[in-house]
Simulated assay, not measured.
Amino acid sequence: MRELTTTEMTEVSGGCCWNYNPCGYQPVVCGPSASVIAAYAGYLAGEYNVQADIFNGASCSTIQSAICNVYADTKLGYTQGQSMTVAQATGLLNSVQSAIRGAVTTNCWGCITAMTTITFPPSNGGGSGNLG
């Protein structure tokens, strides 16, 4: 375990960074980075899949695998986000949210009646239909 560098802290926080100019250091607002947004999209997809497996009564080993996949999806999102703009990463996040909405079935009272797992990154904006 190690402490994060200032650069890493800025990257993961989406916070404020400092630029040096001849007059000294000045804060520069740095909005959320594309890699952080894309990592969150992966995390959201992975966490949803854990919940879908639990809802569907999957085996303990399947749920354990889904939990491990949360990390893998988060890492994949972060890696892909490094070559994205913030707008592209936001689009990826919107696609994940759309895929989740498409993978959940509710009845006329709004109760969830079915949940299918999704793929990350989403390929078609909907549920993949495979329980995993």
Rank of each mutant, 00 (worst) to 15 (best):
residue 1 M to P: 11
residue 2 R to H: 14
residue 3 E to A: 15
residue 3 E to D: 15
residue 4 L to F: 05
residue 5 T to F: 05
residue 5 T to D: 13
residue 5 T to I: 11
residue 6 T to C: 12
residue 6 T to F: 10
residue 6 T to D: 15
residue 6 T to V: 14
residue 7 T to C: 06
residue 7 T to F: 09
residue 9 M to C: 13
residue 10 T to I: 13
residue 10 T to R: 08
residue 13 S to A: 11
residue 17 C to E: 09
residue 20 Y to N: 14
residue 22 P to I: 07
residue 22 P to H: 05
residue 26 Q to G: 12
residue 26 Q to L: 13
residue 26 Q to S: 13
residue 27 P to H: 10
residue 27 P to R: 08
residue 28 V to D: 11
residue 28 V to G: 10
residue 30 C to N: 12
residue 30 C to W: 01
residue 30 C to T: 11
residue 35 S to M: 10
residue 35 S to H: 05
residue 36 V to P: 00
residue 37 I to D: 00
residue 38 A to L: 01
residue 39 A to Q: 06
residue 40 Y to A: 14
residue 42 G to P: 09
residue 42 G to Q: 07
residue 43 Y to M: 08
residue 43 Y to S: 06
residue 44 L to M: 10
residue 44 L to P: 04
residue 45 A to S: 12
residue 46 G to D: 09
residue 47 E to Q: 08
residue 48 Y to P: 10
residue 50 V to P: 03
residue 54 I to E: 00
residue 56 N to H: 04
residue 57 G to L: 03
residue 59 S to D: 05
residue 60 C to Y: 03
residue 61 S to K: 09
residue 62 T to W: 02
residue 63 I to Y: 06
residue 64 Q to S: 11
residue 64 Q to E: 12
residue 65 S to V: 09
residue 65 S to R: 09
residue 68 C to I: 12
residue 68 C to Q: 15
residue 70 V to R: 13
residue 71 Y to K: 14
residue 72 A to Q: 12
residue 72 A to G: 09
residue 73 D to K: 11
residue 76 L to H: 05
residue 78 Y to S: 12
residue 78 Y to K: 05
residue 78 Y to H: 06
residue 79 T to L: 11
residue 79 T to I: 12
residue 79 T to K: 10
residue 80 Q to C: 10
residue 80 Q to T: 07
residue 81 G to C: 02
residue 81 G to R: 03
residue 81 G to P: 05
residue 84 M to I: 00
residue 84 M to Y: 00
residue 85 T to C: 05
residue 85 T to V: 04
residue 85 T to N: 08
residue 86 V to E: 01
residue 87 A to I: 01
residue 88 Q to H: 07
residue 89 A to W: 01
residue 89 A to I: 02
residue 90 T to D: 06
residue 91 G to T: 06
residue 91 G to M: 00
residue 92 L to H: 02
residue 92 L to R: 06
residue 92 L to W: 04
residue 94 N to S: 11
residue 96 V to H: 10
residue 97 Q to P: 04
residue 98 S to I: 04
residue 103 A to K: 04
residue 103 A to D: 13
residue 105 T to E: 12
residue 106 T to K: 12
residue 106 T to H: 02
residue 107 N to R: 02
residue 108 C to A: 14
residue 110 G to S: 04
residue 110 G to T: 05
residue 111 C to P: 06
residue 112 I to C: 08
residue 112 I to H: 01
residue 113 T to S: 06
residue 115 M to Y: 00
residue 116 T to M: 08
residue 118 I to W: 02
residue 119 T to H: 03
residue 119 T to M: 07
residue 120 F to Q: 12
residue 120 F to R: 03
residue 120 F to D: 14
residue 121 P to E: 05
residue 121 P to L: 01
residue 123 S to T: 09
residue 124 N to I: 06
residue 124 N to D: 14
residue 127 G to K: 07
residue 128 S to K: 08
residue 131 L to C: 13
